[in-house]
Design a protein around this nucleic acid. Sequence first.
DNA 1: CTATTGTCTTGAATGACTCAAGACACTAGA
DNA 2: TCTAGTGTCTTGAGTCATTCAAGACAATAG
Lengths: 145, 145
Amino acid sequence: MYDPMARAAARLREAELRVTVQRMAVLTAIEELGGHPDAEAVRGRAQEVTGGLSLQATYNVLRVLTEVGLVRCTQITGQQARYEAERHNNHHHFVCRFCGDIIDVDCVIGEAPCLVADLPESYRVDEAAVTFWGACPRCAPAEHG
Amino acid sequence: MYDPMARAAARLREAELRVTVQRMAVLTAIEELGGHPDAEAVRGRAQEVTGGLSLQATYNVLRVLTEVGLVRCTQITGQQARYEAERHNNHHHFVCRFCGDIIDVDCVIGEAPCLVADLPESYRVDEAAVTFWGACPRCAPAEHG
DNA sequence: CTATTGTCTTGAATGACTCAAGACACTAGA
DNA sequence: TCTAGTGTCTTGAGTCATTCAAGACAATAG
């Protein structure tokens, strides 16, 4: 039993960031929510702790947390940016075309960039982002065509 | 030597779409522009033919052309939607983190979905979209860090 | 040629996100 | 502990790609 906020504070300090309730709340929210919440969802959860948290602050905090590598930001075509706690396991995403749900897919190849692009050597590739598109188990049966 | 507009008209008819100058202009524009133009760029080129083409019409046309498979729409994180003539060769994209330039990368694996996701069988995967991120030859030398 | 239906234009709206300015809070140093 | 200094938060307005809505217009079938 340990205080998640205290833990968040420690991680912020480790990253050489100022420790504020808003940052602790956002970081804790992302870790406790799990999945791939968007900024609004993160804000909602964080507000339960802080009592109030502006959307602007949510975006600010999400950005700095992403910059220092505590949070990973994923932008799926046609959706808002989504956030998840960075666990430093290279993984990709499956996105359901129907409900928009996102789930993690372990990278079976290894570290980034896990794929090799057929490009001239003058191109420097540092990441291969793979998004699998399809139908999730809930939507697949309902899909016609 | 053949009229590109007549060719466009034929392809529209083939797709069972009404043939309008706007549609011919947009389809021709995409094919002649090459690369990965956004809606505004497509509109600009198409206007040279039609004299006038509303942005709304551009979006409408791009959508229907995408739906019938004459055009492929690619949405890269942090950029507007981009369009290209569908050539039915499964390929992916390289995106330069610095200048935003997009270039095609042939898929070395084969037909979609070219990768297999480590997912339960109940998930139906029909596409694996790969985006390679890095620095293009023009930006790589200037990059510090 | 005309009716019907789909498409285009115009103008307003949406939604995610960002900018800006002032109020406020965190950290370091006295 | 107090205070200066700077970074962060709040509020409110702004941006930008894209979409909605309504009426004018054009393409196709008969």
